[in-house]
Amino acid sequence: MNRAAKKNRLHIGKEFAVLVIAICGASLMASCGDDDLDARTDARVACQDAVEARMKSPSTAKFGGVSTDGGRDSGVTVTGYVDAQNTFGASKRTDFACLVDFVGDSPHVRITGLE
């Protein structure tokens, strides 16, 4: 094998090693905090379901500006707004806030604001 081929082969090997390290690092970072991420996702769904249960026309609900804060151990606060039709068919925006606590894997939702 000539010198240029060896140099090219070494260069490709280095690029492959960097790629493998990058993939492993990204995978490791993605696994950090998965439990809290899952908790925030579960809390968001549970809160939106609770808010929809109080609506006159839940099928028209469009949620927006939803944010979550906290985790499985400390509880999750979910805030945002929902646009939906009222009993007269007019669209109305309502702000909401929920506090979601977990007992085991089950989310328990307390709506703390619905205005």
Rank of each mutant, 00 (worst) to 15 (best):
D83S: 14
D35V: 07
A17E: 11
M55A: 11
G71Q: 07
S27T: 02
T112K: 11
E52M: 12
A46P: 00
D38K: 09
K56P: 02
L37I: 05
A50V: 03
D36M: 06
R40W: 08
S27I: 00
G71F: 09
A61L: 07
A30Y: 07
F88K: 09
Q85N: 04
A90V: 06
V103K: 14
S74D: 15
L19E: 09
V18D: 13
A22T: 14
E115T: 11
A90P: 00
S27Y: 04
G80F: 07
C32H: 03
R72N: 12
T77Q: 15
A5R: 12
D35Y: 03
G70L: 08
A26Q: 04
L28Y: 05
A17D: 09
V78D: 09
V78I: 14
T68P: 06
I111Y: 11
L28M: 04
G65Y: 09
G65E: 13
D83C: 02
K7I: 14
E15R: 11
S31R: 08
G104K: 10
I12W: 12
L114I: 06
K6L: 05
P107E: 08
R72D: 08
R110A: 12
A4L: 11
L37V: 10
G33F: 06
M1V: 13
L28N: 00
M29N: 07
V82P: 00
D73P: 01
S31D: 01
C32L: 08
R93K: 09
S67D: 14
F16A: 15
A97R: 07
G64T: 08
V51H: 03
D38E: 08
R44N: 13
D95F: 05
R9F: 12
Q85T: 00
A39R: 01
F102S: 03
V82C: 05
K7F: 13
D105W: 08
A53W: 07
N2V: 04
T60Y: 09
K14Q: 12
S67Q: 15
K6V: 01
T87I: 06
G89K: 03
A30V: 02
T60A: 06
V51G: 03
R44H: 05
A4D: 11
C24Y: 02
F16N: 12
K56T: 12
S106W: 03
D83L: 13
R44A: 15
A39N: 02
D36R: 00
G89T: 05
G70Y: 04
I111N: 10
G70I: 00
R40D: 08
A53Y: 07
A84F: 07
A90N: 13
T77I: 15
T112M: 12
P107G: 08
R40I: 05
M1D: 13
V51E: 04
C24V: 07
T60M: 10
D73R: 14
D42E: 13
T112V: 14
K7Q: 14
L114F: 15
K62L: 10
N8E: 13
H108F: 10
M55F: 04
L114G: 05
A4T: 02
G13F: 09
R72E: 14
T77W: 09
S67G: 11
T94M: 10
F102M: 02
R54Y: 03
I21R: 00
L10M: 14
T41D: 12
F102N: 01
